[in-house]
């Protein structure tokens, strides 16, 4: 079984982060929330692997692993 990647993995991290902010630029709070929700679903589908998704949910909830 593969594990969730938690080591740095995005080449051009600053670029990506700027693009993320730009995507939200000018949106109301509720439109931004909706966008984030769609983004989560798009990324989750790309990952697909159920075990990784469970690990990702735990990582996002800032739960430390046993």
């Amino acid at each position: 079984m593969s594990d969730l990647t938690l080591a740095p993995n995005i080449a051009g991290a600053d670029d990506f982060y700027a693009e993320l902010l730009a995507t939200h630029e000018g949106l109301s709070k509720s439109d931004s929330d909706a966008l984030n929700a769609r983004l989560v679903l798009v990324l989750a589908n790309h990952i697909g692997d159920r075990a990784i998704l469970t690990q990702a949910l735990a990582a996002a909830a800032l739960k430390s692993e046993e």
């Binding site: 929330d33 909706a34 929700a37 989560v40 679903l41 798009v42 589908n45």
Partner: peptide, 23 residues
């Protein structure tokens, strides 16, 4: 509120992307 946001996100995506339809 968040379960509505996620639900609506699924529905909006389902119109354009097939992957969201099973959700």
């Amino acid at each position: 509120d968040m379960s509505r946001v996620l639900r609506d996100a699924v529905l909006d995506l389902s119109e354009v992307h097939e992957f969201a339809r099973p959700l």
